[in-house]
Design a binder for these strands. Structure first.
Lengths: 115, 115
DNA sequence: GTATTATATAGTAAAATTACTATATTTCCA
DNA sequence: TGGAAATATAGTAATTTTACTATATAATAC
């Protein structure tokens, strides 16, 4: 499946690493998942996901730097949304994996490391 | 596409975050990509990818802790391989994204942040 | 047995991330 | 005009990650 595909370029590896690392935080995954539903204000994220407001702003800033989210400003409110298909693609992967785990099609089990 | 799928569980978010964060390092992406070709010894990785041997061992240890790779020992050599379908799935996503970027189907461009 | 090969592990300094508190800025409304 | 609401930003201590050097361990070859 994978072996006969295009060689991944060094630039892509760098960018992919940045995006994957950025996505590698529970809060940010939650935020991104929430944004799949459509654009949201900082306050909506802050209240609905029960996170401190500065934390939300901080995460959004990081994700904006990495081109994961964009925003439009309207008065005092900032409406954030997902920036590109890459992110949706990754999330689709995650959802598919989740579905297969749920259905028992895969018996793979993450372990909690003890160190 | 995504909106009507199963809600991602909190446990999955935690695990996904761990795996994504671990994969979010250029060297580890290279190693994982190399392992797609089949099991490899530490020395092969170290020489073929031109990384310091302790660095390779360190990355492999981290990825083993996260169930991204497994290994079998034969004499003094350790043969590492990818541990599960989750990783291949993520890599497939990355490859697909790469292909679409290469073909121009997507005009998305990562930016290099200046901070 | 001794050197060599292959790999893991220990130790560590520098850098990055995280979570948090406090505060500044902007806009809106009474 | 003055205050409240929404959000960004600054500052910071604790933790984690990273990259590196040195060394330990175990198997093998001579």
């Amino acid at each position: 499946m994978v072996s006969n595909q295009t060689k991944i370029s060094p630039e892509f590896i760098q960018n992919a690493a940045r995006v994957l690392k950025t996505l590698g935080h529970p809060d940010r995954i939650k935020i991104v998942e929430f944004l799949e539903d459509g654009e949201k204000t900082v306050g909506q994220i802050h209240r609905d996901l029960n996170m401190h407001q500065p934390i939300v702003s901080q995460h959004l800033k990081v994700m904006h730097d990495r081109d994961i989210v964009t925003f439009r400003q309207e008065g005092t409110r900032y409406f954030y949304s997902l920036a590109n298909n890459f992110i949706t693609k990754i999330l689709n992967c995650m959802s598919e994996v989740q579905a297969k785990l749920d259905s028992g099609e895969w018996d793979f089990e993450f372990s909690i490391p003890n160190n």
